[in-house]
Simulated assay, not measured.
Amino acid sequence: MIEARGLGWAHPDTPDRPVLAGLTFTIGPGLTLVRGGEGRGKTTLLRLLAGDLAPGAGALVRRPGRALRPSPADPACDPQRARDWLLDQDLPALQADPAAADPLLAALGLVEHIDKPMFMLSTGSRRKVGLLAAALAGAPLTLLDQPFAALDARSCRVVAELLADAAASSTRAWVIADHGRSHWLDDIALAGVIDLGD
């Protein structure tokens, strides 16, 4: 679904200090983990995979189709109700059935928060809203940055179940970025790991 050859990117202000350099990998269906230490380029790589950034070096070939990289933490979302933010994400499951989100809303503990403006939500609750969008999107490519961060144990279990389903997919690719392999992934077969180093 995705092939990178010699992929690189540097901030325009510091072209001599690339954030990413010489990455070669393929990503197929299932669940792929991007791991690396702080500042190693995990989020940058997700943005490249989503098409939000253009490679500065090498080549990145992605199969046509929607790439979803939910970003409910964006301050631009602050005044928007969480429910309205979800509706703006073009989620086919939600458009077909407005009640499709109800089981996950309950499982993630979002029922009492979904009609609040985003600025009133905690970091964890905003992350949960993004995870809800990922679950309902049905996108060929879904990209999640630190999906377990700032979540309670109950929500982490729900996310682990969601990612286990993603890992079993033969048609969709999910890519998650994190500092390492969370113990919540212990029982999940990863399609691949892209290691950016510590």
Rank of each mutant, 00 (worst) to 15 (best):
D97M: 04
P15G: 11
W184Q: 12
A50H: 09
L46G: 10
R181A: 11
G30D: 07
D88P: 01
L104Y: 08
R17E: 08
A4I: 06
D13K: 15
P75N: 04
P29C: 11
L143P: 03
D187R: 15
T43S: 15
A177L: 11
S122Y: 09
H179A: 12
K42E: 03
R66P: 00
G130P: 09
L105G: 08
A153S: 13
L48S: 05
G37H: 00
A150F: 03
H183Y: 12
R63H: 04
A139P: 00
G56Q: 08
D178S: 14
G51W: 04
P70Q: 06
V193I: 15
R35W: 00
L105Y: 06
A149H: 08
S170M: 04
W85M: 02
A57D: 09
S155W: 02
L86R: 05
C77S: 05
D90Q: 10
P70I: 01
R66D: 00
W184A: 12
V19R: 12
K42I: 05
D152S: 07
P79G: 07
P103G: 05
Q95A: 14
L144D: 01
P55V: 04
S122V: 01
L31I: 10
G8F: 06
R63A: 13
D16I: 06
D88R: 15
P64W: 00
G8S: 01
D90W: 03
R47G: 04
F25T: 02
L151A: 05
G51N: 02
I27H: 01
Q89P: 02
I176W: 13
A139G: 07
L94P: 03
R83N: 01
L131T: 04
L23I: 03
D186S: 15
L108M: 13
P72T: 01
D102F: 05
A139I: 07
G22N: 10
A137Q: 05
A135V: 09
L190W: 14
A149Q: 11
W184D: 04
S169I: 10
R157F: 02
D195P: 03
E38L: 11
D198H: 13
I194R: 13
S182C: 08
A50K: 13
G124R: 04
I188L: 12
E38Y: 08
A167M: 12
E3D: 05
D78E: 10
A57C: 09
A149C: 02
D13F: 14
W184Y: 15
A137I: 03
A135L: 06
T44V: 13
L162K: 01
L110H: 01
I194M: 10
V159E: 02
A135K: 10
G6E: 08
A166I: 04
W184V: 03
E112M: 05
A164Q: 15
P117K: 09
D84Y: 03
L49C: 07
D152A: 14
R181I: 11
S169W: 00
V34L: 13
A10C: 07
A96S: 08
A99L: 13
L53Y: 07
S170D: 13
D16E: 15
H183A: 14
L94W: 11
L94E: 01
A82H: 05
P55A: 03
E3N: 11
A57H: 04
A160H: 07
A59K: 11
A107Y: 09
I114Q: 00
P29W: 08
D165V: 14
D16Y: 12
L190A: 09
G22A: 04
S155L: 10
A137D: 14
V159K: 12
D74V: 08
R17T: 15
G58F: 02
R81E: 06
G41V: 02
A59S: 14
W85H: 10
A4Q: 06
